[in-house]
């Protein structure tokens, strides 16, 4: 019974969370297509989903290419996102 209550609470959390997120994201007014975004935007939005956004001078241009391929596999980033993020990192380096 106690476990059922916990499961219900967890379900409620997920439901409320999804609704809250919907409201928050809708308020931000961002409905831009991923393909229309700049590399800087994609870098800021995607890296922080797991860890802090890396600083461009942390690695050289060639290293960024290898890291980008690694992240494309690990984080299932799309080809377009990876290309733009790498372009940004190289430019900012």
């Amino acid at each position: 019974m106690k476990r059922k209550t916990k499961s219900i609470l967890f379900g409620l959390f997920v439901g409320l969370f999804a609704i809250g997120s919907l409201v928050l994201v809708s308020c931000s007014g961002s409905s831009q297509l991923v393909t229309e975004k700049t590399g800087a935007q994609l870098w800021g939005e995607n890296c922080v989903r797991c860890h802090n956004a890396p600083s461009p001078p942390s690695f050289n241009d060639y290293q960024w290419e290898t890291i980008a391929l690694h992240m494309r596999v690990r984080a299932s980033l799309t080809e377009e996102e990876v290309a733009k993020i790498v372009e940004f990192l190289k430019m900012a380096n």
Binding site: L22, V25, S31, Q32, L33, V34, E45, R49
Partner: peptide
């Protein structure tokens, strides 16, 4: 299966 419904990639289910 992961779904990111918003263009900001803020939410993933």
């Amino acid at each position: 299966l992961g779904i990111l419904p918003f263009s900001s990639s803020a939410l993933e289910l």
